[in-house]
Amino acid sequence: HNLTITQGKLFFHYNPKLCLSEIHKMEEVSGTKGRQERNDIALKTNGDQASCENELLKFSYIRTSFDKILLRWEPYWPPDFRDLLGFMLFYKEAPYQNVTEFDGQDACGSNSWTVVDIDPPLRSNDPKSQNHPGWLMRGLKPWTQYAIFVKTLVTFSDERRTYGAKSDIIYVQTDATNPSVPLDPISVSNSSSQIILKWKPPSDPNGNITHYLVFWERQAEDSELFELDYCLKGLKLPSRTWSPPFESEDSQKHNQSEYEDSAGECCSCPKTDSQILKELEESSFRKTFEDYLHNVVFVPRKTSSGTGAEDPRPSRKRRSLGDVGNVTVAVPTVAAFPNTSSTSVPTSPEEHRPFEKVVNKESLVISGLRHFTGYRIELQACNQDTPEERCSVAAYVSARTMPEAKADDIVGPVTHEIFENNVVHLMWQEPKEPNGLIVLYEVSYRRYGDEELHLCVSRKHFALERGCRLRGLSPGNYSVRIRATSLAGNGSWTEPTYFYVTDYLDVPSNIA
């Protein structure tokens, strides 16, 4: 807008934040220059609390790290170098490059900038070799853009010569660093050979998330399962459950009422301010606690030095998902009996873990797994792929695949051998790939016309006998059925096997 004052003059007093240069501009645009008398524009009460600059400061050096910015700028000295009290560095987070010096300023003089007072450097006698002032900004957020400017702080001049310097606002972004852990990993099994893994992005990506790394490792069953005799009275049979499938998407929606109208769909109840505040506090606490764990609990591995020492970490090797089922080394339970199943799973520490690289999504279907087997899954978020990966501390989750139908069934015939004193040795093959492992066998036998009897055969007993022995049988026709019990439950009964026990007292003698 054009402003013209045809008559009258300007009068400025007691404006401590208004620089004289701005008042002189007002004289020019209003056409009143030359009308004012000496005392109409006070030299001592206008701009006496402001830094009124008329020179431009330029930054000469900028260096960044993930949490620091090192700045240096060209030296500046007023005509009387004693008038320079120091520099004021202003900075704040700036997602967009549209910041002005006066953003967030209120009537009390406060604003949204963080201000650092910096002492002037030592003055050199040689004007050509003056030290460049600077400042190291610490405690910054990774991968965050900051708006920065600097200006001088000078003393009051009796001659009211307006001098000083100020830089333009520059924008500097800190470097990326390792992201925080992925949030809320959930693993479920939808079949006997697959596990579905879902997660949420890290709360602090500290860069642009480029991919996720998912490692999985087959877990050995508890050692007590191999040692305890679950045929003993009072000892509860062990059981394991597989990871249940995901709930429906509708039930997972946030901010939804727990109660549904019987007449149909209901609208979600909005969260109160107290609920939102509580969630923010919980989120802040979780982030602080995660940072504490990362800094205190997890110790970084030592990389190899120039002395030739090897990095103890196993090298990563990509495998196809079809090879995942046989990740671990199978060892027989008892070496003397080769027909026992290889369900003991000690994992070799030198073995390469299978892994998958996930790009542009937060889910993965891990296939080719062994049925009813526990897996430990390790999830890392990465925001750099080359020249070397920059990934987060791992988040861990466990899951067990679903049982395989008929995996616990005894394959092959049940054979028998009759000894003296009416002892019958029953023999059968253990299931080759049971659900988890076989903890015991149930032997059901009966003599024709009598009630059915049951015998429990422990895992250890089966390994020693290759089956079991029935003792003290009365003469007669017998039928026997056997079924295995694994961590997933009972298998199917075998087809009945028949044998006849004679009275050993009636056996004919070869003595003449």
Rank of each mutant, 00 (worst) to 15 (best):
S274Y: 08
D311Y: 13
R376A: 01
F462Y: 08
S262P: 11
S479N: 08
L280H: 15
F337M: 15
P238G: 07
H461G: 11
V424P: 03
R240C: 15
P244I: 12
E265L: 11
E282A: 07
A381T: 08
I438S: 04
G472M: 12
V358A: 14
S268F: 04
V359I: 10
C391F: 00
E430F: 10
R218A: 09
L277S: 07
L235V: 11
S243G: 10
H461W: 10
E265P: 12
S251K: 14
L369Y: 00
F285L: 04
L505F: 11
L228P: 01
Y292A: 02
V507I: 09
N435R: 01
R390E: 01
S305Q: 11
G325C: 15
P205S: 08
D385L: 13
E217L: 15
S248R: 08
S239Y: 15
E351K: 12
R286C: 05
E227F: 10
P431E: 00
L235G: 05
N383W: 06
P270V: 04
E430S: 11
A463G: 12
A399E: 07
S268I: 13
P338V: 13
T343P: 10
R390L: 13
L440E: 04
A335M: 13
G476Q: 01
V501D: 06
S283V: 07
S274T: 09
E290Y: 02
A399W: 02
N383G: 07
E362F: 13
S392E: 15
G368W: 14
T401I: 09
C266F: 08
C267T: 07
V334H: 09
H461C: 11
F215S: 10
V414Y: 01
Y396I: 03
S492R: 08
T340S: 12
R390M: 06
Q256M: 10
P403E: 00
L455I: 13
T386Y: 00
S509L: 14
E247W: 13
D506P: 08
E465C: 11
M427V: 06
E388G: 11
R370T: 00
P205A: 08
T401V: 11
V439Q: 08
R469A: 10
R459Y: 04
S344Y: 07
V331H: 15
L369G: 04
G412N: 15
D204W: 15
I377S: 03
L364V: 10
S479P: 02
K233V: 13
E465D: 09
Y375E: 00
P244F: 12
R240G: 14
E442T: 12
S320W: 06
P238A: 02
F337T: 11
Q384E: 12
V297L: 04
E258N: 15
Y478C: 00
E247T: 08
H371S: 12
Q380S: 09
P475L: 06
T401E: 01
D450L: 08
H461E: 06
S257H: 05
T343W: 11
S474E: 07
V501Q: 07
K406M: 10
S304N: 15
Y498E: 05
S344W: 12
S348E: 06
N477S: 11
T401M: 01
R316L: 15
G325N: 11
G308W: 05
H461T: 11
R447P: 13
H371R: 15
N326H: 10
I438K: 02
Q429T: 15
R318F: 15
S283H: 15
W216E: 04
E389I: 13
Y230E: 03
N510P: 10
V297E: 03
E227L: 11
D273M: 12
Y445D: 01
T210Y: 02
S474R: 07
L213A: 14
L237F: 11
Q384H: 07
Q252R: 10
P434T: 06
E442L: 14
S268K: 12
M427S: 13
I418G: 07
S474Y: 11
N490W: 11
V359R: 09
Y500H: 08
S284E: 01
R286P: 04
F462W: 12
S248I: 13
Y259F: 13
A309P: 12
N339K: 10
P354T: 13
E430T: 06
Q256E: 10
S342V: 10
G322P: 13
H254K: 15
K460H: 10
R400H: 10
F246P: 11
R218M: 15
N208W: 13
Y375K: 00
T347A: 12
P332I: 13
N255T: 08
L440K: 04
E249Y: 00
W242T: 06
T303M: 07
K357A: 15
Y259M: 09
G322S: 09
P312H: 11
D385Y: 08
I377N: 03
K357S: 14
W493E: 04
W242Y: 02
E433P: 04
S243D: 05
D250V: 06
A488D: 04
D385I: 13
G472C: 06
E227C: 10
F462H: 13
L235I: 14
S509Q: 15
S239I: 14
L232D: 08
S509V: 10
L293P: 01
E221T: 12
K236R: 08
P300F: 03
R471P: 08
S341K: 13
L453R: 04
A381I: 02
N490C: 10
V358L: 08
H371W: 08
D222W: 13
V299T: 02
S223F: 04
E224R: 10
V324N: 11
E350I: 05
P270R: 10
R318T: 10
F298Q: 03
P244Q: 15
N208K: 15
